[in-house]
Design a protein around this nucleic acid. Sequence first.
DNA 1: TGTCATT
Length: 521
Amino acid sequence: MARSTQTETRSQQHPPQPHHLVPTSLVFSGPGAPPTQPPLLLIPHQHQYAQIPFPKPMNGSESISIHPENGTMKDQDAIKLFIGQIPRNLEEKDLKPLFEQFGKIHELTVLKDRYTGMHKGCAFLTYCARESAIKAQNALHEQKTLPGMTRPIQVKPADSESRGEDRKLFVGMLNKQQTEEDVYRLFEPYGVIEECTVLRGPDGNSKGCAFVKYSTHAEAQSAISALHGSQTMPGASSSLVVKFADTDKERTIRRMQQMVGQFGIFNPAVALPFGTYSTYAHALMQQQAAIMAASHGSYLTPSVAFPATQIHQMGALNINGLPPTPMTPVSGLSSPPANITTSAVPSIVTPIVNSFTGIPHHQPNGHPAVEAVYTNGLPTYSTHSPTAADTLQQAFTGVQQYTAIYPATTLTPIGQTLPQPPQVIQQQQREGPEGCNLFIYHLPQEFGDNELMQMFLPFGTVISSKVFMDRATNQSKCFGFVSFDNPASAQAAIQAMNGFQIGMKRLKVQLKRPKDASRPY
DNA sequence: TGTCATT
C-alpha cells in the first residue's frame, strides 16, 4: 500500500507521448502533489550540466545512428536505454560525446515526431556493451540537468527492455471529468504507481481512459481483480474497465486497423508506403481475411439449399445453429415468381473478402454487386414487384453461394503463415459516406454483425455492419447499421429490404440519421 | 441511429 508520505518515485520522467498534443501526462511524486505547472517554468537549475563538449563536428554523416550494417556490434544482452529531458536543440551528434565516455555506442536515435519531424526531447541509446549502459545510467540518471532543462536527465532501460507493458494498465470507462489525481487515488491502494496518465484529445478533453503503471506486475494484477467492472462512473456508459495495456505488437495492429479504416482501402502496400512495414501489414491483412472467412464458418454447416418455391421460409439460413426464423417477403408475394432461380445468383455475389484478400473472384472490378443489381433488369425496387422478390431471393441465396465459395480450409493456410495463431480481430465499425449508411431495425434476435452483413452483401460492398448488443445481457438490441461504399447500393438495399418480413416482424431499413439532424423518420 | 476510449 503506497503511503501518501512517499515522495520518491522510481520514474520521474516518461517519454513525451507522441499523440499528446497537450501536456497532460503527469507523473506523481505523491498523491497529494500532482504537478499542475507545465514544464520549462520557474524551477531553478540545481544541476546545470555545462560540460558537454558540443557541438563537436562529426564525421560528416548527418545521422549518428549507427546501424549494424555500419559496423558496430552490440552484445546479445545489450540494454536499450531511454534518454529523457534532452533539450530540443540537441541532436545525435551533440549528445554522442556525453554518452561515449561510458563506452562505444551502437545506436543513438533522437525521437522525432513521425509527421512533423519535431524533436521530442528524448532518445534511445544502445551501447555495444551492456556494462556501458549500466555505467551511464548510474552516472547520469537523475544526476545532471542539461542546459535549458528544468529536470534532470533520464537514463534508464527503455520500456521495450523491461517489458514495462506487463505492469501497465489501460483504464477505460472513466468519467471524462476525472483527472490524473482522481485516477491515482483510485489505483493507489493496490500498489506503487509509477505513472498515471489520462488520455486526452487535442482540445485537452479527457477521452475517458487512462494508463496506470505499477512498479510490479503483481500490483497491476491485483488492481485488475479489485477494480475491473467494480463500479460505473457517473456519465460512463459501462462499468470501469481495467486491463493490461496493449503491447507494442497489439498497438501496431491497432494502428494498422485504423489506417485501413481511415483510408478505406484494403491493400496495405498502398496504405503503408514504408517498405519494412508492408510485408508485416500484408500478413496482418491476410490474417484478417482468414479470420473473416473463419467467422463465416457457421454457414458452412449443413447449409440447406432452399428451394426457390420456399422463399417465404428462409429459416434455412441456419444462423448459429438456432432454430430457423421464418423469413417472408412483404405481403403480396405469397406465391413467389416462377423466375426465381439460384442460377442467377453467382453474378450478384460479391463477398467483401475479395477486397481483403485481393483475390479476384466472380467480379474482379471490385464493384460488382451494384451493377449486378441494376443489370439484372430491375427498373425499380418496389417491394411489391416481382423484381424486388427476385432481389430478395438473390440476397438470401447469395448468402449461401457466398459461403460455398469460401470453404474454411481454403484460407486456413494463410493464417498459418503468420508467426502466431490468428486472433479475433474485430471488424472495424466504420461509417460510409453520406447516404451510404443504413439503420436497420427489427432484426432477428439471433442476428449478429456477420449475419447482418450477409443479408446486405448482395446490394453492394458492405464496408461495415454492426448489430447493437445490450451490454448487461449480451443480447442483441435488434437493431444495427450497415454501411456501403456508395449511395446506390444503400438505396437498392432500402428498396429491397425495408419491410421485409422475418417471423412476426418486418425489417425497418432506412438511411441512418445524420448526427446533427434530429428528425425522426 | 455507430456503445469502447490504447501513449
